[in-house]
Design a protein around this nucleic acid. Structure first.
Lengths: 107, 107
DNA sequence: TTAACTCATAGCTATCGGGGTATGGATCAT
DNA sequence: ATGATCCATACCCCGATAGCTATGAGTTAA
C-alpha cells in the first residue's frame, strides 16, 4: 500500500543517501569506489544506500568489468513534483473558493 | 548542519505525518480532534506529529478556547521545490555540455 | 465548584534502520 | 595460477523514533 511518494520521501530522507544522489546529479556517472572516497562512510554502507536508491528508481547501474557505475535517473523525481503540485493545487482551489465566496458576499 | 531540505524530507517521510499534512491541504483547517478521528492512531500521537510538522514550518496552529486548529503552510514546501529544480538543473547542464561537445565534435 | 472535554506532555516499549566488520564472488594484473 | 582489486551480501549493534497509556493543564458547561 505504499505509493511512489512514500518510497521517494523515505529514500531521500537520509542525508547520506541524498548526498550520494546529489553528487550523481552534479557530477554525473560515478563508480562505487569514487563515491565511497568522499562519502564519509564505509564502502558496504555506500553499496547499501545505492541499492536503496536503485530500488526507488532514483539511480541506475552499469557494470563494467569489476566496477559498477551509478548515475542519477532524474525522471524518478516526477512523483515528488506531482505530489507537491497536487498539494499546492488543493490549497489554491480552497483559496479560490474563499475568494469566490468573498466576492459573492460583496455583491 | 541540517538544511531545510533535510528537515522537510525527514518530516514528510513518515506516512502518518504526510497523511495529516495532505488532509490539511485538501480540507483546510482542522482541530486535533477532527484529525484524530480519521488518523488511525491515538490522539497523543497525532499531537506529536502535528508538533513535528509545526517545527518544520509545514503547519500553523491557532488556539480557540480548548481546541487547537491546525492548517497547512504551503510556502514551507518551497525548499523542496528548489532542491528538485536544482537537481534537474545540474542534470540539464551536464546534458547541455554533452550536447555542446557532440556539436563541436561534429564540426 | 465540580465535572466534562480538548489537547499536550511524560514515560515506556518495540521496531526500524543506518552504521560497522567480515567475507565471498567476480574480474584484472602479474 | 596467484594475488590484488572492486563491489555486494551477511550479520550484528545501537540510536532514533513511532506507537501506546497515563496524566496534567487549560477551558467550557452544569
Amino acid at each position: 500500500m505504499s505509493n511512489a511518494q512514500d518510497m521517494l520521501f523515505r529514500t531521500l530522507a537520509d542525508p547520506t543517501r541524498r548526498a550520494l544522489f546529489e553528487r550523481l546529479c552534479r557530477e554525473g556517472e560515478k563508480t562505487v569506489g569514487a563515491l565511497t572516497a568522499r562519502a564519509g562512510v564505509s564502502q558496504p554502507v555506500v553499496s547499501k544506500h545505492l541499492g536503496i536508491l536503485k530500488q526507488a528508481g532514483l539511480v541506475r547501474d552499469r557494470h563494467e568489468g569489476r566496477q559498477t557505475h551509478y548515475s542519477a535517473r532524474l525522471g524518478a523525481l516526477a512523483p515528488l513534483v506531482d505530489w507537491t503540485s497536487e498539494m499546492a493545487g488543493f490549497w489554491q482551489s480552497r483559496f479560490d473558493a474563499l475568494e469566490d465566496l468573498l466576492k459573492r458576499m460583496d455583491q
